[in-house]
Design a protein around this nucleic acid. Structure first.
Length: 440
RNA sequence: GCGCCUAUCGUCUAUCGGUUAGGACAUAGGGUUUUCAUCCCUAGAAGCGGGGUUCGACUCCCCGUAGGCGCGCCA
């Protein structure tokens, strides 16, 4: 029988990283096996399941490249089918009607009370408990609506799901689900319960731990490939010390028996590192599009910059970018004369005595240069550093801060060349003037 | 409270009874560089505790401890 798995989120407007990680594992499993990856939208909560929420869900999946097969199933549309199954269970004696607490008549599923229930979880091994430790549970509410457990199982039957890969907060539910499958005369599918993702404190990862939703990572400028790769490695390891992998490699390597069963902490530092790896691999044109979007959103962008200059900026910025949202703060000086100055850098590099004179002397020297390029500017600063006994560093640091407002960034001479002589000299003189006025 | 699950460097993990317990992130130091990033080198850093089983346990079993999950007419 060919593999059929599903991702069954309830659309609430935000997709939690724990859920999307489950989707990733399902997807990898299906693609590895050459099976089907299906989407089932569990939209029975009419309050939260808005069209916008469903759109968000679909967008997130597309962004991460989680393409699904077949037509998505909307659980709310299966209501009649769920209720029919409940009737069938009543008829066969596996369920009964009851008026609990006077709330009206609901349908309760009867759990076996003798022996033990067990199942073999692909990642957790055999899980068993005494039947007496399980309890009957409601499958149709007194308002006539099917409950999660019922709907979930019926849909899995209808979709001919072969493997259920989900978070391990469902291990207990599985006992219930298995009994429903059997009561309906179906063999339960295979189960694989994934460990939870926890925060730095070892507690379940939530909103309070920073970004918890996929959309937030996207906004911060994480690449889908990086997030995908990173999340895939939370609870799974292909062995052989493989970490940064292409999607195809992950598909080829993925197996459930290499999944761990203990909780994994979300290490943002490692995600940031990995994202940097992916950004450096990104084609320049792709990076440039995102770069432009980010700078525009921040208001610095102007369209009259020659394309070649933008290319130059991108070439300097891309190699040192870890995530896109840090771009505007690092690049303002490429686009405006009103670039902000970092207070600490000003204090350290521009406040010392003699700096205004030094900046003006540099401007003068630069203006006298026959050509304003990397070699010439470097030679000029080296010479001045020697003359003044300040060394190259003594020249470079004040100039960098004066010209960019920051103490770190691309190589200074690449930066100067890109900015061009007029802008560089004007900035040096203006910084000197402002230092004298005390407005810096 | 009852039940189920889990337990290797700070973090993600490798190890399927025999290893100097390996890799990556992070950290520290060094090299390259004008800064940052990259790149390279180096260092420190781990088997929760106690019993077994075994010639030999991180690995298997039991107990304890800690944590997680579940115990809804939520999903």
């Amino acid at each position: 029988m060919s593999v059929r798995v599903r991702f069954a989120p309830s659309p609430t407007g935000n997709v939690h990283i724990g859920n999307i990680r489950a989707a990733i594992f399902n997807w990898l499993f299906a693609r590895h096996a050459g099976g089907k990856f299906l989407l089932r939208v569990e939209d029975t909560d009419r309050e939260r399941s808005t069209p916008e929420a469903i759109q968000t869900l679909l967008q997130v999946m597309e962004w991460l490249g989680l393409n699904y097969d077949e037509v998505p199933v909307y659980q709310a549309a299966q209501r009649a089918r769920h209720l029919a199954a409940a009737e069938q269970l009543v008829t066969s004696g596996h369920a009964f009607r009851e008026n609990k607490d006077g709330k009206g008549e609901c349908i309760v599923f009867r759990m076996p009370k003798e022996g033990r229930v067990e199942y073999t979880d692909i990642v957790k091994g055999t899980i068993r408990k005494k039947a007496e430790d399980t309890q009957d549970f409601v499958i149709v509410r007194s308002d006539g609506n099917p409950v999660f457990h019922l709907a979930n199982v019926i849909d899995d039957i209808d979709m001919r799901i072969t493997h259920i890969i989900r978070g391990d907060d469902h291990v207990e539910n599985t006992f219930k689900h298995i009994q429903i499958f059997r009561a309906l005369g179906d063999e339960p599918p295979q189960y694989a319960h994934l460990p939870m993702i926890v925060n730095a404190m070892g507690k379940p990862y939530s909103k309070r731990d920073g970004a918890a939703f996929v959309g937030e990572f996207r906004e911060q400028g994480f690449l889908p490939q990086a997030l995908f790769n990173f999340l895939a490695l939370l609870g799974w390891a292909p062995g052989e010390d493989r970490e940064v992998m292409t999607r195809d490699e992950m598909v080829a390597l993925f197996t459930l028996d290499r999944c761990k069963s203990s909780a994994a902490r979300f290490d943002l530092k490692k995600l940031i590192w990995m994202n940097g790896e992916y950004i450096r691999q990104t084609p320049a044109a792709v990076f440039r599009a995102e770069f432009e979007a980010r700078v525009k959103a921040d208001g610095y962008w102007h369209t009259d910059l020659p394309a070649a200059e933008v290319d130059g900026i991108v070439a300097l910025v891309q190699p040192r970018t870890k995530f896109y949202s840090e771009i505007p703060g690092n690049c303002a000086y490429f686009f405006t004369e009103e670039y902000p100055f970092d207070a600490k850098s000003v204090e350290k590099r521009l406040k010392p005595a003699g700096v205004p004179e030094l900046l003006e002397a540099v401007a003068q020297r630069f203006e006298a240069l026959p050509a304003f390029d990397h070699a010439a500017t470097e030679a000029a600063l080296r010479a001045m550093g020697d003359e003044r006994g300040a060394g190259l560093g003594g020249m470079v640091h004040p100039v960098r801060v004066a010209v960019s407002g920051l103490s770190d960034g691309p190589g200074l001479f690449e930066m100067l060349t890109l900015l061009g002589r007029p802008r560089v000299c004007a900035r040096l003189r203006r910084a000197a003037a402002r230092l004298r006025e005390g407005t810096l």
